[in-house]
Design a protein around this nucleic acid. Structure first.
Lengths: 304, 304
DNA sequence: AGAATGTTTTTTGTATAAAAAAAATAAAAA
DNA sequence: TTTTTATTTTTTTTATACAAAAAACATTCT
């Protein structure tokens, strides 16, 4: 009927655990200090203190808040059937979109989806509005939303955009001075790659996090909020698919390791052209892999 | 109290004008056809027809909708004090942000702003959520919004990002076959630039639209939804500032025309390096201009 | 039979209300 | 005078209600 009291409940729990470390009879700090500690407003602190007094945990008179007894299991406040936090909604929704190769233009029912994902309708609305920036959904001309879906077209354009950003990073990186920390990091990555290459037969599953680390390191030399914005989505989509398509995983990863090593060496040579070429080659492979996994997915979806 | 009947009112008007072209006594087409013509649902068509019948404009019996008389000025339906359309809100808000060089972290009051911009609070909320993608505003940890503002840092990063996208476009463009329509367009642009250069003393104001056309043409060779997403904001911010900072407008524009012409010629030469160099030079100038206008703005704001 | 209309059911967008939390202000105690 | 608490005012956030619009379904007419 109104906004949730999640914040209050969290603060209640937190203060309970804080109190457990204090001896009986001691006084709690001033409201403002508590508010600061719990990262909430004083208003909420007072609400919690009032609840504590009611539960007989403390006596609260003026500026004295004396602990009466230790909290027990019974004092814990259950969270109400809670909504998903934003982050999780994002993850779940993206997986839903990526997994089910929905046809372009599928209409979305906000009310139903909100229930399904157990979030308030506005939250979903806002989330969709955010997603529309990435072109995965769009507002229909006459109200409502339409899921454009993760189509082959989309994958191609995403790959191309990724290539633009990453080539830019490579071109920047290659000219950085030799005492820049990036070179040390590249050396470490090189070792990790060589290490994994040696035991690829058994540990080819370990490649996915290494891949993410590699690309993240390369792109980290470009400190730009717009670039970073997209890198987040790109990495999410690419890696989600990566760990999902299990065909030929071993050989694919082995080849990718080789390409990564080639890029590192080209970077170290200081030759911009060579580095760009190596990166382009790898990005092209990556794109093909993504597209192939899409095709397989489509086949699976079509099968009876 | 409920959703607005804007759609109904628009349909009412539209049907009025459609009817004005028909002779008295003729019949209107079936509901489904009208719905299609007016791009609304049949339900709304029926609501409009009912209103028409009540107003004595038509007799509606079964599937016969006969025009009784020509509509007069009195039949027009006034739109209710309407909200701003989304597009306009975007424009107004951006101008507001760009004009007043607000300090980073200024809290935004959604309710007040919504009133000020005369939009429903949700619309503003959603709009802010969209803007947060561009890093102009951010959601504060404990609710509410905070305006990060259009700072020098922001301008620098935006310029850099623009450079990345535009250099990519240039690199693509230079290798396009000679029968691609882009070359024809470039020739036209070249003529327009030379034309303007000849009369720059009097018409230097005409440069802004030409600049927009130039950059739009260059970037149009990259068909990528992510690129386009950003191009919109970039163009908006750059051109808003462009037409705002009036210092040395004439000489600035003259110089820019020269740089544009240099880019066109370098592109035509087919030399990727040369083209990239010319584009880089121009983008650097552009960045400086943007930063300079920001500094002037700050001085004006600080003055008593 | 097929097209058009009448009716019912869903869905969406907006306004309003109410609770929770934050912020601001006033008052009191140390 | 400074710190802490009490009170009041704003602001944010969710829930609910309801009209408008769309879509689905049923019926009627030609």
């Amino acid at each position: 009927m109104a906004r949730t009291d999640d914040r209050f409940r969290i603060a209640y729990q937190d203060l309970l655990t804080v109190m457990a470390t204090q001896p009986i009879g001691s006084d709690l700090p001033p409201e403002l200090v508590l508010a600061d500690q719990l990262s909430i407003s004083r208003t909420t602190v007072r609400a919690v203190l009032t609840a504590f007094a009611k539960a007989g945990l403390i006596v609260w008179e003026g500026r004295k808040k004396t602990i009466l007894r230790m909290p027990t299991a019974k004092d814990r406040l259950a969270m109400r059937d809670e909504y998903l936090p934003r982050e999780e909604l994002e993850q779940r929704f993206l997986k839903w979109v990526l997994r089910f190769d929905v046809p372009a233009g599928t209409p979305l029912n906000v009310a139903k989806l909100a229930k399904e994902f157990s979030v308030p309708p506005h939250a979903l609305q806002e989330f969709l509005s955010g997603l529309s920036q990435f072109g995965l959904v769009t507002r229909r001309p006459r109200g409502g939303w339409s899921l454009l879906g993760f189509t082959a077209d989309y994958a191609v354009e995403l790959s191309e955009f990724r290539a633009v950003l990453e080539l830019n990073a490579v071109r920047t990186l290659v000219h950085l001075p030799r005492d820049h920390p990036i070179w040390q990091k590249l050396t470490e990555l090189e070792q990790q790659h060589e290490n994994l290459a040696a035991r690829i037969d058994t540990d080819f599953h370990d490649f996915s996090p290494l891949d993410e680390a590699f690309h993240h390191t390369i792109t980290s030399v470009v400190q730009n909020r717009f670039v970073k914005q997209f890198q987040k989505v790109i990495s999410l989509i690419f890696h989600y698919h990566y760990q999902w398509d299990k065909r030929m995983e071993r050989s694919r990863n082995e080849a990718a390791i080789g390409e990564h090593l080639a890029i590192i060496r080209a970077l170290r040579s200081g030759d911009e052209q060579a580095a760009a070429q190596a990166a382009t080659a790898h990005l092209a492979t990556s794109k093909e892999t993504l597209l192939a996994s899409l095709r397989v997915n489509a086949l699976i979806a079509d099968a009876p």
